[in-house]
Write a protein that binds this DNA or RNA. Structure first.
Lengths: 209, 209
DNA sequence: TCGAAAATCCCCCGAAAGGGTAATTGTCCC
DNA sequence: GGGACAATTACCCTTTCGGGGGATTTTCGA
């Protein structure tokens, strides 16, 4: 059974040392490198390529999310877990976009932290069910058609979909076997209802872009 | 401490009954309604409005995801947990889009199932770390700019971003303090590199739409 | 069955978009 | 220094887009 190499980026010495002691004191885990800020981590970590990196979001200077963003490019095999007090939507989503694959809160128990590291290393994405709910809410919000679309008629929605695919008026007309002028009229009505002037604006408003 | 009312939609009698017995035999849980197919559940559940519904994905006739989609509209307060043998990306994502907020695999232990129901009811989204990883991978894939964009120059990417926001050539020109003709040329080059003819096509290809 | 909403079509017109070509200025690299 | 490439500007041209107006038929619910 191999040892999981863990690096820590955390500005608060108390927490940083507690994590180091926890990890080094546990069978199968090793923590040889800890950093108090992102800048130092960015300098050294790319050469060390640890299996897992625990990164605090709130860091002085460059924050943890930007830190992960930079590091992930240079060491894609390393798994990053955000370790933070924040559990609001924005931070979670930004962290995931930056390349983090785990997200735990600081109040997580030591045993659970170790378990999370193990899961992260074996291909999972540990996160509390509250964090997961926030992620899911974001997905569901993104996939829900905006309310603006509701005021459109069935035909208008249909044409809007073709518009989203990049078809010309003429192509849409052919697909629906109606005249180009009718397509134009529908689109004109769509623009009026959505209060926009161009195709791209309409698509941005109709879907959440 | 209130009792959590749980409904079950599961076609295999063995599993269905095992879940019912598990839930009814546990303090704080109650399961009074079980269904072997989606059709029956759709008829009765909207009147019962249980706190939580465990729904199998693989059902005869209407599948569990379509079932949740229909039910979620009629009873938005009920929390739906998919309970399945599948853990592939498509099913997970479709289930979440349909309105499910939990996703557990059938091999989950009885104790963990109860814990998952409790978390689901208290506002969390229980899912195994493997399932969570798949969700996160989908998010990261969606947010990663497509490789196609990489062949664009910095200036071209910049203009592409403005294009995505729906600006006119003239507006982009003003923002970048360059001439409209230059903007046009850049966009022409972008289209060539992305092998498209229109703005919408370019945006669809550049981002994953 | 009456009327409103939706869907269909048409004309005019100016602005925007997109294709093609050519030329100038840098910068970076060999 | 020369070559490749990025960024810039300019001009040509055609098509498409979108706003304005008006008109007819279909549909569907009150």
């Amino acid at each position: 059974m191999e040892t999981i190499n863990v690096a820590i980026v955390e500005d608060l010495e108390e927490i940083r040392e507690a994590l180091r002691v926890l990890i080094n004191g546990s069978q199968g885990f090793s923590c040889t490198h800890v950093y108090a800020d992102a800048e130092q981590a960015l300098l050294e970590l790319p050469n060390l390529k640890p299996d897992v990196a625990l990164v605090d979001i709130h860091l002085p200077g460059l924050n943890g999310i930007e830190c992960v963003q930079d590091l992930k490019d240079q060491m894609p095999a390393t798994q990053f877990m955000m370790c933070t007090v924040y559990d609001d939507d924005d931070h979670i989503f930004d962290a995931l976009k930056a390349g983090a694959t785990g997200y735990i809160l600081k109040r997580t128990s030591p045993a659970q932290i170790l378990e999370a590291i193990r899961e992260l290393h074996s291909g999972g994405s540990p996160m509390s069910s509250e964090v997961a709910r926030r992620v899911i809410n974001s997905i569901q919000k993104k996939h829900a058609p905006s309310e603006a679309v509701e005021i459109l008629t069935q035909r208008e929605k249909e044409i809007l979909d073709y518009l989203a695919l990049g078809f010309l008026y003429k192509e849409i007309a052919d697909k629906l076997t109606i005249s180009k002028e009718t397509v134009k009229k529908h689109i004109h009505n769509i623009y009026e209802k959505l209060q926009v002037q161009t195709r791209t604006e309409a698509l941005n408003k109709a879907f959440q872009r």
